[in-house]
């Protein structure tokens, strides 16, 4: 690997680390629970990016699916169900700083996506193929998971079923209404 690409990877990791830490601090400091959970989504997506830079591509994808997808939906669902946010969010949704931030984010997104599209259309890869390093990494993980750790893998499905059944048992008690008035 050349020095330039090494440096680029390290810069990318540093940026991802800063985003992860900043969104983590925002999760802890926001007063509004919905805003905190939104920052948590950013935090988990940034962590998934860190996994990918650290050459664990499959775990990055699993992180986005499970954490940023399923678990965050659960969090938001509970926040909305409990109607925790009774007081309005003061002094937001306007201001020059926010507009500049939004514009910068949009610019970065467009640049990154545009670059990716340009690179992809320049050298057409066969459909369904991955870079050699990625393919090796996923094959290696899958072989290890399905051979050496097959019993643990199957047991983990039982853990999920047991957790789901348990939650159903203790959250659906009959004859009790929530004191907040929400169903």
């Amino acid at each position: 690997m050349t020095d330039a690409s090494t440096l680029a990877t390290q810069v990318v990791f540093a940026v991802i680390a800063l985003v992860t830490i900043a969104s983590g601090i925002l999760v802890v400091t926001r007063r509004n629970p919905v805003a905190a959970i939104a920052c948590l989504v950013v935090h988990f997506v940034a962590t998934a990016c860190a996994y990918i830079v650290l050459s664990s591509q499959f775990l990055g994808a699993a992180q986005v699916l499970v954490y940023a997808g399923a678990i965050m939906v659960l969090f938001l669902f509970v926040v909305m169900l409990l109607a925790v946010d009774k007081q309005p969010d003061p002094g937001a949704a306007s201001g020059l700083g926010r507009k500049v931030l939004v514009a910068a984010c949009a610019l970065v997104l467009i640049t990154v996506v545009g670059r990716a599209v340009a690179q992809h259309s320049a050298g057409p890869a066969a459909a369904g193929t991955l870079a050699p390093g990625v393919e090796d990494s996923i094959q290696w993980l899958a072989a290890d998971l399905m051979e050496r750790h097959l019993v643990a893998f199957e047991l983990s499905s039982m853990v999920l079923i047991a957790a789901m059944a348990g939650v159903l048992v203790y959250t659906t008690r009959r004859g009790r209404e929530m004191p907040g008035g929400t169903p």
Partner: peptide, 26 residues
């Protein structure tokens, strides 16, 4: 990496149980 895979699985179960506890607490 294998550990992280199983931690993610357990975290999914833990999130469901924990948020259920928050609901019960409320």
């Amino acid at each position: 990496r294998i550990f992280v895979f199983f931690v993610i699985v357990v975290a999914a179960a833990e999130a469901a149980v924990g948020l259920g506890i928050v609901l019960a607490l409320y």
